[in-house]
Design a binder for these strands. Structure first.
Lengths: 232, 232
DNA sequence: TAAATGTTAATTGTTGACAAAATTGAACGT
DNA sequence: ACGTTCAATTTTGTCAACAATTAACATTTA
């Protein structure tokens, strides 16, 4: 592969950074699946860079949770177990709840004059996307909704970690399970969050956000269970 | 420096892992302070390993938040600002609250038969350490208390992240501020958490845990403020 | 003097080679 | 067949050298 032009995205001032992004893409897009081994030599020749550079990229990815490192044996795409998914949902719920509470406080302080309007707009678009059954748009709006709140919380560290969690959860979304289950219910939960945040009610926002993630997990579990019963 | 024998701590199967631990120690113990530059060559000759190995160690530390990486300029010990400390406290509170709620649920399920007793014992020891003004012991017991709860939550990922946060917060604890302020109050908050978790009351445990971290932050801020007013 | 420019030194980025460890698989015996 | 031993091969860990970038300093010029 030749390093493409679009690679000039963000953390890519250096070659290793570019390679890192490429490997991450391979994992997220399913080129590499859970359990796969990352062969340093193979990757380096495939990408036309040196082994050391690939090695550096892999090391940098390891802490993100997408990759497991075993000394003298190599790097493997992390295999997320069902119990880990539960843990990830718990963590994500905790972060998101905290972020929504913080966002609500900032709204109350007048620090986020645009937020209420933006959330409301997103909610409306989501409803029409649902009506027209536009999954693609719905999916993006859903991401945007959570991003807006995370950004409004004014806690960049929280956002970074949240994004990591979401990325890692995608690793488990292999079996083609559609994420979108019970959309109507999910949208209503978004409405609750929007109202609480917009009115500056921190505790209500926190509770609504936590509930949203928790029931999201429940919806997901239901899907998994009916697909492969008795794996829990 | 020659790599000491005690280096056989945890992530030390490989040389780079050992170097990483050594650099981390330097940062935590104050050998390297915020803003300091990490010179690859200097470190490598000092430790008697190759530059590449030091480089790998530094890269691995970067994601932990202790170190900032700037392309073509090098690695610097992260300078934690006051607003970042607030963010870290918020995050830590969210994780700890979630963990305590999870621990309470596990107690309710009978999955943690030892926990209530262990927490109670810790509480008692803490009280006597406070009476005899044994700061060293108190400090360790405080760490143990939080560790027990994080472990009981059954969420290793949460514990890892929590530990990272605590480590990063230590970076800000330069100016010799004693961490132990209003110990009596802190112990009473521990009692609240202990009671909620022991009785399996998840929501109460969550609230008590969150309050504990929040008021810990308030106590800390009071100290900082009276030391250098007008920095917030 | 101060700003701009050119030159040199120091430091990071990248690479290829060598050493050590792990995996593979064939030969061997039971 | 089955497991064990051990050499051959592959793969990772470490190192030292080279290239590219940045920082420091002297020199020129307005």
């Amino acid at each position: 592969m030749t390093l493409t032009a679009r690679s000039i995205g963000q953390g890519r001032a250096t070659l290793a950074g570019e390679v890192r992004g490429e490997i991450e893409r391979m994992i997220v897009e399913g080129d590499l699946v859970a359990g796969d081994k990352l062969n340093e030599l193979a990757l380096s020749t495939a990408m036309g860079v040196s082994r050391g550079t690939v090695r550096e990229a892999i090391r940098s990815l390891a802490d993100s949770g997408l990759i497991d490192l075993i000394a003298n044996r190599g790097a493997f795409v992390h295999e997320t177990t069902l119990s880990e998914v539960r843990n990830l949902y718990d963590l994500r719920g905790a972060i998101f709840a905290m972020a929504c509470a913080a966002a609500a406080r900032r709204v109350a302080e007048g620090a986020e004059p645009e937020l209420a309007h933006a959330l409301q707009a997103n909610l409306q678009q989501m409803r029409s996307a649902h009506e027209t059954d536009d999954k693609q748009t719905y999916y993006q709006l859903n991401i945007d909704f959570h991003d807006m709140l995370l950004n409004a919380a004014g806690n960049p560290r929280a956002k970074t970690f949240y994004d990591k969690l979401v990325k890692e959860m995608h690793l488990f979304r292999r079996r083609g399970l559609s994420i979108a289950t019970n959309i109507a219910r999910s949208i209503d939960e978004h409405r609750e969050i929007t109202e609480a945040v917009s009115s500056g009610a921190a505790e209500a926002a926190r509770a609504a956000a936590e509930k949203h993630i928790t029931s999201g997990f429940a919806r997901y579990m239901k899907l998994v269970d009916q697909e492969e019963p008795g794996t829990a």
